[in-house]
Amino acid sequence: MRRILKLLVAAAVIGVAVGLWLTAPDRVAPERFASLSGDVAAGEKVFTASGCASCHHVPGAEDKLILAGGMAFPSDFGTFYAPNISPDPSAGIGDWKVIDLANAVMKGVSPKGQHYYPAFPYNAYNKMTDQDVADLFAYLQSLPADATPSKPHDVGFPFNIRRSLGGWKLLFFSDDYVMDVPADLERGRYLVEAQAHCAECHTPRNALGGLDTSRWMAGAPNPSGKGTIPALTPDKLTWSAEDVAYYLESGFTPEYDSVGGHMAEVVDNFAHLSAEDRAAVAAYVKALPAPKADTSGSSSY
């Protein structure tokens, strides 16, 4: 009996050790960013395309460049709150280095080595180029600092165990693009799948919160519990590429309706991008294949 007990204890210890190894945070190699210099002007474009202000500005504030956070994001796993990412050295990211931002947006790992929740769309941002991350860091450090502390997430057991997110990453973390596209669609793919992280809202998720890539952009329930996020696939969205590009610029649909909800923030971002970028996004959207399974997505916003 003692021998069996010892074997069981040894197996348990080995199991825990393997689990800790498998769920350990991964980090970006520091030498990738050692020689990169960020450009503030270029970083502003990355910031806009990536929608940073849309989530991290203070809810209801007129100045959307004060990134003190606080916006709530309800989900089946709890309510997440956007943190302070202003250059304040205590409450924000003022004491970060560019490698810290790279680990955050590309690996979902904090400077202290903790996993971030995937409510932060690092599973899209991980496709960004190193130069874009360096430029984004330069721009973020140029913005106003704010000392408002980040609001803690309202997440209960077992989802409040950060280490378990390492297991989630083993299942769903990927820096591969979903769609294979020709060269003329690569810019649109980069904007949609990486910077603008469109799939985070427009693609349905499985029971563990991972994106169901077999139904890419096929619409999804609204995390707030009110309605659905519309499908962008050709079986649902019948707009032309010109209609899509104009919507991203103006917020007006071909049916003379206007944008609403959180999508208004997205349109505000895209309206500040170039016409070429909006056209690139529209071309990618029109190249989407029809989903393999039927969805309840709608084409009206």
Rank of each mutant, 00 (worst) to 15 (best):
M1P: 13
I4L: 14
L5N: 06
L7K: 00
I14W: 04
A17Y: 04
A17N: 06
V28Y: 02
V28I: 15
V28M: 14
F33T: 06
L36I: 09
L36D: 12
S37L: 11
G38E: 08
D39W: 10
V40E: 14
G43T: 09
E44T: 01
K45Q: 15
F47E: 07
F47L: 09
A49G: 09
A49K: 02
S54G: 14
C55W: 07
C55D: 09
H57M: 09
H57F: 12
P59I: 14
G60F: 13
A61T: 11
E62C: 00
D63T: 03
I66C: 02
A68G: 15
G70Y: 07
P74H: 11
F80K: 01
Y81M: 10
N84R: 02
N84H: 06
D88V: 07
P89M: 00
P89N: 00
W96F: 13
V98N: 03
D100P: 03
N103T: 03
G108L: 03
S110C: 00
S110N: 04
P111T: 01
D132K: 01
A134V: 04
L136P: 06
Y139M: 10
L140Y: 05
S142Q: 12
D146M: 05
P149D: 11
P152F: 07
H153K: 00
H153Y: 13
D154Q: 15
D154H: 12
P158R: 11
P158I: 13
N160C: 03
L165W: 09
L165A: 07
G166L: 06
G167D: 06
W168V: 01
K169G: 08
K169A: 14
L171C: 04
L171M: 14
S174D: 15
D176E: 15
M179I: 06
P182H: 00
D184V: 06
E186K: 13
R187Y: 02
G188W: 05
V192R: 02
V192M: 04
A196E: 06
C201I: 09
H202K: 02
R205W: 06
N206D: 15
N206H: 04
A207I: 15
A207V: 15
G209E: 09
W216A: 05
A218I: 10
A218S: 13
G219A: 03
P221R: 00
K226F: 14
K226A: 12
G227C: 07
T228R: 09
I229C: 01
I229A: 01
I229S: 04
L232I: 01
V244R: 01
A245T: 08
Y246N: 15
Y247T: 02
Y247C: 03
L248C: 05
S250H: 11
G251W: 12
Y256W: 08
Y256A: 08
V259Y: 10
G261T: 08
H262W: 11
A264I: 11
E265F: 05
V267C: 06
A271H: 12
A271L: 05
L273R: 02
L273G: 07
A275E: 15
A279Q: 13
A283D: 15
K286N: 08
K286T: 14
A287R: 04
L288T: 04
P289A: 00
A290W: 10
A293W: 08
D294N: 05
T295S: 10
G297Q: 03
